[in-house]
Amino acid sequence: MPLGAVIEFTNITKKFGQVTAVNDLSFTVEPGRVTGFLGPNGAGKTTTLRMLLGLVAPTSGTATFGGLRYRDLARPLNTVGAALEAANFHPGRTAAHHLGVYTTAAGIPRTRVAEVLHTVGLAEHATQRVGGYSLGMRQRLGLAYSLLGDPGVLVLDEPINGLDPEGIKWIRGFLSSMAAEGRTVLVSSHLLSEVQQSVDDVIIIAKGELVHSGPLSSLDTDIAPQVIVDSPDRDALVTALTEAGLAFTSGRTGLIVAVPDPGQVGHIAFAAGVELNVLHRQKAGLEDSFLALVEGGDSL
C-alpha cells in the first residue's frame, strides 16, 4: 500500500510578465484526508498545481512531496498521480494505447492499463479512439492516467467538471476511499458545493493569494448559521417561536430561524407540543462564507 506524502507549498509565486498569477502561497496538504483546493476561475489554482508538478517553473518558492520536488522523485507516476484537464490526448489514439504509452515511459506493468480503465468504468471503451469520447469519458480517462502507478498522492484539477450525476456520486465515494487508505488527496474546484460532501480540509485562494485554510467546519463559524423549520400547523409553530423570543423569517420551505442549533428549535417545538415535518440546518452557510471569502478577501 503506497503511503501518502505531505504536500508542502512554501512561499510559491508565479509572475507572467507584469501579472502576478500566484502570490506567496504557503500551505500544507496532509495524507489521509481529502483536501479541497478552492477559488473562483482565474484565482491561480491550475497554475499552482502545475508548479507543484514541475510543469510550470515558479518565479520563486518551492512545492514538494515529502520534501522532494516533483522532478526529483525517483518514480514520479508511482508517487504522485495527477489529472489536470480533460484534453491531454491525441484524438487518434485509443484509450488503452494512450495509457500504454505512459506505462512504458514510467516502467509500470502493462496490466495496470486494463485495471485502471476498469476502475474508472471505461473498460468497454478501451479500444475506442479518444477523439470520440464525451467530456465525462475524458475526465475518467484523465483519472485513469493518474491511477496508473497506484500512487500515494493524488492531485486532481476540477475532476468533477463534465461528469454526469452518477459520475459525481462515484467520484465522491472514490476520493473518500482513497483518503481512507492513507493517501494524500488534493482536489481543486471553483464550486464549494461540488466538493463539500467529500472534502475534510479546504484551502481557499482568490486572486493568487491564500484567503483561508483549515478543516471544512472552519468555514462554518462566523457567518450567521440558520435553521429551517416547518410544521403542518405553521401558525402554532410561529406562536411557539415568538413566545421563545427567537427571530425568524418566513421562507419558501419553512421558517428560517436565526440560531445555529436545530436542537434548540426542536426543543421549543416539542415543549409547545407542535409537530414538525422539517428541521435542519441551512446548508448554504458554507457556500455563503466561501463566497464572502473569495469576494471580500477577508479572513474568517
Binding site: L53, R71, P76, A87, N88, F89, H90, P91, Y102
Partner: peptide
C-alpha cells in the same frame, strides 16, 4: 503533435527530465 494535443503534460509527468 505533443504541443497541439497537449500531450506534453502526461509526457512530462511520466518523465520529468
Amino acid at each position: 503533435g505533443e504541443f497541439r494535443h497537449q500531450t506534453l503534460t502526461p509526457t512530462f509527468l511520466a518523465t520529468p527530465k
